[in-house]
Computed example of a mutant assay.
Amino acid sequence: MVIPVHDVNPVRRTPWVTYALILANVLVFLSTPGMPGSVTGAENLAQLCHLEAFMDRFAAVPRELVHGQLPHLVPTGQVGIGPHGPGCVVAPPAYRKSPPLSVFTAMFVHGSWLHLLGNMLFLLIFGNNVEDRMGHIRFLLFYVVCGYAAGYGFALLNAGSADPLIGASGAIAGVLGAYIVLWPRARVWVLVPFLIFLPLRLPAWLVLGFWFVLQAVYSSGQAVSDAGTVAYAAHVIGFLVGLLIALPLKAGTPPPPQPPGILFGGRARPRQVW
């Protein structure tokens, strides 16, 4: 998997919505129980119980979205001692959860620093240009629509699942889909892991197309042993929805600047036509 670090595609105005979305995601993450001090997630039972209670309230659950089946007992965030040892206490919910609203709140919830930073990196690099092309308000609506399409699309494919769905990646996948339509030839600096991280400048269609193909393969359960832990199908759906929404904007989109050469590991080579 390549890691994008910068695109050669300047914007005309400040991407305030992109910055606001990143700030909101970071603030929610810092408010998530057990997350700020951990790299990979909750690390002890007390943190896990608090996290489960938080997720149950704010994450999207496919079974709830499709069938409206809300649980009668939910984690309270407290640790108790049961017949099989310590565990998380459950009780009737003290709040009323709205499944449609949970799709929105789930877009701002992340399960670890790695989860958060990976999503925010993609949003920062590619979201600014899409916002610049669409305008602030339309971009915000576009982002939310892609997130809802990804969330409900995944739920329909996994209607019986009670596993929580969290993260901004469905909405961000829509941003990537829009970017590949609007600027397929824009140059993107990426780091490619090959013994060391090699810096390359590649066209957006190759970087984002390769990302999409990986998501599609993973969503089928091929090539990975833990495909069920990541909602790859939500990424695929979000990407395709974003791509379709952006198609009408393609005709009026100015092309990105074309540098004189393509750099491979620091050596300039003649520019090719993609």
Rank of each mutant, 00 (worst) to 15 (best):
L263S: 15
F54S: 09
H72G: 14
V145K: 01
H115P: 05
N158F: 03
Y179S: 03
W183F: 09
R185P: 00
P71S: 08
L141C: 02
Q222C: 07
P270V: 05
A231W: 07
V28Y: 02
V207M: 10
A233M: 15
P92E: 10
N119I: 04
R57W: 05
F58D: 04
T105I: 11
G238A: 03
S98K: 00
L123P: 07
L214E: 11
L240M: 06
G41D: 04
H72N: 13
L249E: 12
G221S: 13
F104S: 01
G135I: 02
G87K: 03
G87A: 07
F139I: 04
V79N: 06
L65K: 09
Y19K: 13
N25E: 08
F104L: 15
L114N: 07
D132E: 08
S219D: 12
H115E: 00
F54W: 09
P199N: 12
Q47C: 01
P15M: 12
Q69W: 05
V144L: 15
G221L: 10
H72S: 13
A233H: 12
A149N: 11
P75G: 03
S169F: 11
L123K: 07
V17P: 01
R267I: 15
V188D: 08
A173G: 03
F122C: 00
L156G: 13
A42F: 01
S161T: 08
T14F: 07
G77F: 09
R63I: 10
S31I: 00
P199S: 09
G167K: 03
L156A: 14
V181T: 08
E64Q: 15
V144C: 07
P86Y: 12
L249P: 00
P259K: 10
I237G: 10
W211Y: 15
G265A: 15
Y232M: 06
N44G: 04
D226W: 11
V79F: 08
P259F: 08
V224Y: 06
Q222M: 14
G228P: 00
L247R: 07
W183N: 09
D132Y: 06
L51E: 02
L243M: 15
S38Q: 15
F126D: 01
G135L: 00
L114V: 15
L240G: 02
H84A: 14
Y218W: 14
G221F: 13
L202K: 11
G135C: 03
A159I: 00
L141N: 04
A94R: 14
F104A: 14
P270D: 10
A60I: 08
T14I: 05
L51M: 03
G167D: 08
G151R: 11
T229I: 10
G135V: 00
V144T: 00
Y19D: 11
